Simulated assay, not measured.
Amino acid sequence: MAYFERLGERRFRATEHTGGAWDLETQHIAPALGLMAHAVETDRDRRRSDGLVLTRVSYDILGTVPIAEVDIGVEVLRKGRTIELVEAVLSNAGRAAVRLRGWLMEPRDTTAVAGSSHPPIPGPDELEAWDPTTVWRGGFIASVEVRRHQQEHGRACYRVRTPQPLLADEEVSRMAAVTGLLDVANGMTVRAEPTDVLFPNVDLTAHFFAQPQGEWLGLDTTVSFGSDGVGLTTSVIHDERGPVGTSSQCLTVRPTSQGPGSSS
Results as ranks from 00 to 15, higher is better:
1 M>K: 15
7 L>G: 07
10 R>G: 14
11 R>P: 14
12 F>D: 06
14 A>V: 07
15 T>Y: 14
20 G>V: 01
22 W>M: 03
24 L>S: 15
26 T>A: 06
29 I>L: 13
30 A>G: 05
31 P>E: 14
35 L>I: 13
37 A>H: 07
39 A>F: 10
40 V>T: 05
48 R>P: 12
54 L>C: 06
56 R>Q: 14
56 R>L: 06
59 Y>S: 14
60 D>F: 07
61 I>E: 14
64 T>H: 09
67 I>T: 09
67 I>W: 03
72 I>K: 06
72 I>E: 09
73 G>S: 14
75 E>K: 15
76 V>Y: 02
81 R>V: 06
81 R>N: 06
85 L>R: 11
85 L>N: 13
85 L>P: 14
86 V>T: 10
87 E>L: 04
92 N>T: 06
94 G>A: 02
100 L>G: 07
102 G>R: 01
105 M>I: 08
106 E>I: 01
108 R>G: 06
108 R>S: 09
111 T>S: 15
111 T>A: 14
112 A>C: 04
124 P>D: 04
127 L>V: 12
127 L>D: 13
130 W>Q: 01
131 D>L: 09
133 T>P: 09
134 T>H: 13
136 W>K: 04
136 W>L: 10
139 G>R: 06
139 G>D: 04
142 A>W: 15
142 A>S: 12
145 E>W: 00
147 R>M: 13
147 R>N: 08
148 R>G: 03
148 R>Y: 10
150 Q>F: 12
155 R>C: 09
156 A>C: 11
158 Y>W: 15
159 R>A: 05
163 P>K: 01
164 Q>H: 14
168 A>G: 08
168 A>R: 14
169 D>I: 04
171 E>R: 13
171 E>D: 15
177 A>Y: 15
180 G>F: 12
181 L>T: 04
182 L>A: 04
185 A>Q: 03
186 N>R: 02
187 G>R: 04
190 V>H: 08
190 V>P: 10
190 V>S: 06
192 A>N: 10
193 E>L: 06
194 P>I: 11
198 L>T: 12
200 P>R: 01
200 P>C: 03
201 N>F: 01
205 T>C: 05
205 T>R: 01
213 Q>E: 13
215 E>W: 01
216 W>T: 02
217 L>R: 03
218 G>V: 01
219 L>F: 06
220 D>H: 00
221 T>H: 03
221 T>E: 05
223 V>Y: 01
223 V>A: 15
224 S>Y: 02
224 S>P: 07
225 F>I: 03
227 S>H: 14
229 G>T: 09
230 V>H: 12
237 I>V: 11
242 G>T: 04
243 P>R: 04
245 G>A: 08
245 G>L: 03
247 S>I: 00
248 S>T: 10
249 Q>Y: 00
251 L>D: 05
252 T>F: 12
252 T>S: 12
253 V>F: 03
253 V>R: 11
259 G>W: 02
